[in-house]
Amino acid sequence: MSTATTSPADRLVPGPRALAVSGLSILRRHPLLVVLALMVLVFQLTTGSFLDTGNLRGIATDAATLTIVAVPLALLVISGYLDLSVGSTLALGGLVAGRLAGQHQSPVVAVLGALVVGGAVGALNGVLCCYLGLSAFIVTLGMLTAVRGLAQQLFPLPLSSFGSGFAWLGGARVAGVDAPVVIAVFVLVVGALFLALTPAGRHVFAIGVNREAAYLSGIGVRRTPFALFVVTGAAAALAGAIKASVLDSAVSGTSGAGFELTVLTAVLLGGVALAGGSGSVFGVLLGVLFLGCLQNGLTLLNVPAFWQQMAQGVALVAGAALARFGPRLTR
């Protein structure tokens, strides 16, 4: 009697059925992937240039700053908190970096200055929310206005002409890839590894699911989200520095205006639960790409700006519906 044997290679390579099951599992967790693919197809058919290399590069560059902030904000939301001040922090970070660069400081000094300022804003949010127990929604909504007012007080006039040294942050290329995209990929990888492989990453989920149970298990229910507030603030300031470098200008009244809504939309579209406890970095990437492709495609079609804003609002509502009913549709 003979028995069939399989080599180690056969056991390592998944068969068609395993691949189908794996693909279906991904669609159940991330139904936005299907919507994104269909949207790309529609934009390509209607514009004829959506998938051109130059246009895709533009989408990636524009999405980079959003990704840099969306990943740490997603971790913060998973832990049960929220930061609505990221737009104002982005503006302040860009202004601080621009001022330092305009004073002929080293580009590294300019970026570090922005990181320190952004981290300080995040630390203040963290103290008020994590250690004093104030509502994250109310605190960060107040900080949105306060930080914007501080930026306008410190920098009442627009800043520009930061010098060629500072331009590397937004214009340099690494192995043919724009520097902001490289930074965004680094943030994505670090965020994914943090959630998947570190105890602190598991603590983020535990705190978001049940804060009291996490506390009784010995998890630092204050320390972990406080650190996420600091990182989110620093990331927003870094994104502001990148924007200032790309535009070679920064304006306190308009820089980052509405950015908090855009980044929160990307996070929620990516499947991160606003109540905390669930989400993934891959989902956040899908949310960022969805918004980037949507805005770019509508721009190519010459859709007016106010319709684009309406589309973003509809996308947020659609994302909520997709998160609610999408998994049922793919069963």
Score class of each variant (00 low, 15 high):
residue 144 L to K: 07
residue 53 T to Q: 15
residue 182 V to I: 14
residue 33 L to Q: 00
residue 323 A to W: 00
residue 170 G to A: 10
residue 42 V to T: 05
residue 170 G to I: 11
residue 276 G to W: 07
residue 17 R to K: 10
residue 1 M to S: 15
residue 308 Q to Y: 06
residue 19 L to N: 12
residue 262 T to S: 14
residue 254 T to G: 12
residue 248 D to W: 02
residue 325 F to E: 14
residue 146 A to K: 00
residue 66 L to I: 12
residue 307 W to H: 14
residue 47 T to I: 01
residue 55 N to V: 09
residue 306 F to D: 14
residue 26 I to S: 10
residue 17 R to S: 08
residue 24 L to D: 06
residue 135 S to D: 07
residue 5 T to L: 13
residue 244 A to N: 07
residue 163 G to C: 03
residue 219 I to G: 07
residue 64 A to V: 10
residue 154 L to M: 15
residue 247 L to I: 06
residue 243 K to V: 11
residue 42 V to A: 10
residue 152 Q to T: 10
residue 117 V to N: 02
residue 5 T to R: 13
residue 108 V to K: 00
residue 91 A to H: 00
residue 137 F to S: 02
residue 170 G to Q: 14
residue 191 G to F: 02
residue 227 A to V: 14
residue 46 T to C: 04
residue 223 R to C: 00
residue 236 A to F: 12
residue 130 C to D: 14
residue 69 V to C: 00
residue 97 A to K: 02
residue 245 S to A: 10
residue 330 T to K: 04
residue 111 V to E: 01
residue 193 L to I: 05
residue 248 D to T: 08
residue 183 I to P: 14
residue 40 V to A: 09
residue 219 I to T: 10
residue 226 F to C: 04
residue 247 L to V: 13
residue 223 R to F: 10
residue 53 T to E: 15
residue 15 G to T: 06
residue 88 S to A: 15
residue 75 L to F: 01
residue 234 A to P: 14
residue 119 G to S: 05
residue 157 L to R: 09
residue 38 L to T: 01
residue 71 V to W: 00
residue 231 V to I: 15
residue 45 L to M: 08
residue 154 L to C: 11
